[in-house]
């Protein structure tokens, strides 16, 4: 190479970087790159937290079970009451003629205290029993 021949590659301009990047690119690149090193976040779940969903399901099941039981019991109670009422009605109204005064059909009709001797006499008189019959039975 002679002194007049200039080495074109020695032109300092050629060593300059002709490329560019969008504004703020390197900051964004660094932010993005740092994410690769972020530790994977491991969320430690304790025993009770893990149990919670199952406990919830169990509680719901139990609630439904109790609700069902209560419902069934109530239905049975209602039925018994109805049945009892009907049975008592049946006893009261089936054996006794409709023309018997209601005073003899009182609830206490079966109790010892409610019926005394006078009541019986009165009843016998009412149904037309003879005096001899009453006297006979008095003894």
């Amino acid at each position: 190479m002679t002194e007049n021949e200039k080495d074109i590659l020695q032109d300092i301009k050629l060593k300059k970087n002709p490329y560019s990047v969008p504004e703020g690119y390197f900051d964004a690149l660094k932010t993005q790159a740092r994410k690769y090193a972020e530790p994977t976040k491991i969320v430690r779940v304790n025993f009770w937290t893990r149990l919670a969903p199952y406990a919830g399901i169990a509680a719901m099941f139990l609630f439904v079970l109790v609700l069902g039981k209560v419902f069934v019991n109530n239905s049975q109670d209602d039925l018994t009451a109805e049945q009892t009422e009907s049975y008592e009605d049946f006893l009261v109204f089936s054996d006794i003629s409709s023309d018997i005064p209601m005073q003899y059909l009182a609830e206490e009709v079966g109790s010892e205290e409610a019926i005394d001797y006078e009541d019986i006499i009165e009843y016998l008189i009412y149904i037309g029993a003879t005096e001899e019959y009453i006297e006979y039975n008095r003894e």
Binding site: D11, K13, L14, K16, P18, Y19, S20
Partner: peptide, 15 residues
Amino acid sequence: EDPYFNGDALQRELH
């Protein structure tokens, strides 16, 4: 084609 190439003609030829 590069919109982020800002060099002159000589730089373009170099690259």
